[in-house]
């Protein structure tokens, strides 16, 4: 959003009578409607590493602050996504690496990469497919949410997630992760992190619109002399591999995915159910036949 939305002119009073209806239209440029697919396009070339997303997320969802030590990993003292941290800004210093000197390295985010990581809300979400209680489900906005009134803390979603996002909290014994502000979407509000992001590095919107916007942005960057820009998680791009089809929250990156702690070609965990079961049943069957043969042989 580069300028104020026309509807902002409809509320000139100092005291409003309540939430601005469909505020997402003012802050993200589009209304939120059930039945559509929503997600985040995170353009890391606009990210200034300010962590407003981390704070806005914790403020909105009342998540506890649980870190009191420096990590020593550049300006990232958060470390990773967890049950109490649903947004994590990664900092990767590249100066000095492979002889890079800050004044000679190509411009624009090549020297110090910053990226706000979040749950990917995968199209075929391994956590959703693994969840035995139906606590994790796909909402009317095509997002993936853990319902903490159902979850019994079995923890199967934790190893299932190919991006290491969801985690069971040791404070309330339930699994937690980003809900793409499910409650805010129901109220027509833009998710807290996307609304707070100062440079619109985190862009919220309807998925197809986001993907086209991201494609044009990548071509634009190539034209501006940043050939390394590529999409991660959009249909048919790295990260949207192995049966995941695509990630509702996808990224524009300028370095290998692993540099940002992302797998280059993750896969859908449920793909491995059938092969494992088939081999298992075959072996069990084989041994059952053998047992039957032995037992009959024994009698003779």
């Amino acid at each position: 959003m580069t300028s104020v939305h026309p509807r902002a002119l409809d509320f000139p009073q100092p005291f409003l009578d309540g939430v601005i209806p469909d505020e997402a239209e003012l802050t993200a440029g589009e209304r939120v409607e059930a039945g559509k697919s929503y997600g985040f396009f995170t353009d890391t070339t606009l990210c200034i590493g300010c962590k407003a997303c981390e704070v806005a997320c914790k403020e909105w969802n009342n998540l506890p602050a649980d870190k009191d030590r420096m990590t020593g990993d550049s300006y990232d003292n958060t470390g990773a996504l967890s049950a109490h941290t649903w947004r994590h800004v990664a900092f990767i210093e590249r100066i000095g690496r492979r002889g890079g000197d800050s004044t000679t390295m190509p411009p624009y985010q090549s020297n110090w990469l910053m990226m706000s990581d979040v749950c990917k809300h995968c199209h075929n979400a391994p956590c959703l497919e693994a969840c035995p209680t139906g606590a994790i489900f796909r909402t009317e906005f095509d997002t993936v949410v853990v319902q903490t009134d159902i979850c019994n803390g079995c923890g199967y979603c934790v190893p299932a997630c190919p991006f290491g996002v969801v985690e069971v909290s040791d404070q309330d014994g339930k699994a937690h992760k980003c809900t793409l502000c499910y409650d805010r979407l129901k109220g027509g509000l833009e998710p807290a992190c996307a609304k707070a992001c100062p440079t619109d590095s985190i862009q919220f919107g309807e998925l197809s619109g986001l993907v086209t916007r991201a494609q044009t942005r990548v071509f634009e960057l190539h034209a501006q002399g940043q050939p390394a820009a590529y999409l991660y998680g959009a249909p048919e791009t790295p990260g949207a591999t192995g049966g995941l089809d695509w990630l509702n929250c996808f990224f524009l990156l300028t370095e290998r995915p692993e540099v940002y702690n992302l797998p280059a070609a993750p896969s859908r965990a449920a793909n491995r159910v059938r092969p494992a079961l088939a081999a298992g049943l075959a072996t069990a069957g084989l041994l059952t036949l053998a047992a039957a043969a032995l037992m009959r042989g024994g009698r003779a």
Partner: peptide, 25 residues
């Protein structure tokens, strides 16, 4: 109960930095 960016403002259009976003706390 909540402090958020004001979408009407020509300066921040609803966005906030980490400090401003923590005004409630």
């Amino acid at each position: 109960i909540a402090v958020e960016g004001d979408p009407r403002s020509p300066i921040n259009q609803g966005t906030l930095c980490p400090k401003g976003a923590a005004t409630l706390d």
